[in-house]
């Protein structure tokens, strides 16, 4: 804990000034979503809800928002669930089971973690084609989940490492198998980690653009990212209200999740990448 300095109000002001662009940006989004036009940050011609018509009717040839929203939801939830499940199981094994080659797998996880996953897109594209999962939500979910595994395993391993050995030994003497210990004792004990990981992955998957963009072609499988991106090119500056409204709509769930789970996330972002 650093000591307070006398000049902190000055520092705070400086930070505030630096943060103005950020604040301005999000403010613009908010205002634009509800105004006919926005000059700078000023709504011209009063406020309106007309941009939010996308909630009621499809825009052009695009699928209805309900479908897109559902896709995004299924996608983010699916990825989060898969990552939490696979990561915690693998992390438990790497943390607590003794076996030859453990060092190797751990090293592999580390290497993958620092790896530029995105450069594998071409290879991934091909694999999906081979598996017949190209242009399906399921395919992208699997890919996205895999790309998060190194981080997930890394993070959960830290949590499992913290469980006292005596606890596990006691469980074995009590008659539990490793799987029972994992299910009934270890998992409940690492619950904060599971939540943090799940939330983080959900947020990241919710906002993911490149993967669905590259691996999905049919509009019926669109996520909100693709929906919004299709609007970006197609709409005139003067009509940005619609795009802003969709953008705000897209942002809202994450914003809420973030405000609610803020403490959580700060621990995972801070401690999630271990040097």
């Amino acid at each position: 804990m650093m000591p307070r300095t006398r000049f902190w109000p000055l520092l705070a002001f400086g930070l505030f000034v630096l943060s103005l662009p950020l604040l301005a940006g999000y403010l613009w989004l908010l205002v634009s979503a509800f105004s006919f036009q926005v000059h700078g940050l000023k709504p011209m011609g009063g406020l309106t809800l007309e941009h939010w018509r996308f909630l009621l009717e499809p825009i052009g040839q695009r699928p209805p928002i309900g479908r897109v929203l559902l896709n995004s939801f299924v996608y983010a939830l699916g990825v989060a669930f898969l990552v939490v499940l696979a990561s915690s199981m693998a992390a438990y094994a790497l943390s607590r089971l003794a076996f030859r080659g453990r060092g190797f797998y751990l090293g592999l996880v580390l290497v993958l973690h620092a790896f530029p996953a995105v450069s594998l897109l071409i290879g991934i594209f091909y694999v999906l084609q081979l598996l017949g999962l190209f242009d399906t939500l399921a395919g992208v979910i699997l890919v996205q989940a895999s790309l998060f595994l190194p981080l997930g395993i890394w993070l959960m391993k830290g949590f499992f490492d913290a469980i006292p050995w005596d606890l596990e030994r006691a469980a074995l003497v009590d008659g539990a198998s490793r799987w029972i210990f994992f299910l009934r004792i270890a998992l409940p004990l690492v619950r904060p980690g599971l939540f943090a990981l799940g939330t983080f992955v959900f947020i990241a998957a919710w906002g993911e653009f490149i993967l669905p963009y590259t691996l999905i072609v049919s509009s019926r499988a669109w996520t909100l990212a693709l929906y919004l991106q299709s609007l970006l090119g197609a709409v005139d500056l003067a009509d940005y209200g619609l795009v802003a409204a969709v953008g705000l709509f897209y942002l809202l769930p994450v914003l809420v999740l973030f405000l609610v789970g803020q403490r959580f996330l700060l621990t995972i972002y801070g401690g999630g990448v271990k040097g």
Binding site: D166, L167, R169, A170, L172, V173, D174, G175, S177
Partner: peptide, 30 residues
């Protein structure tokens, strides 16, 4: 033999009680 097949009871220095269970559940576990 695996510990669970040896018919033994063990008390650890740190007691190793399962923190998220009540004492009753702890004792009932085996």
């Amino acid at each position: 033999l695996h510990p669970k097949d040896r018919d033994i009871g063990m008390v650890f220095q740190s007691y190793a009680l399962y923190p998220h269970m009540t004492l009753r559940e702890n004792i009932a576990f085996p």
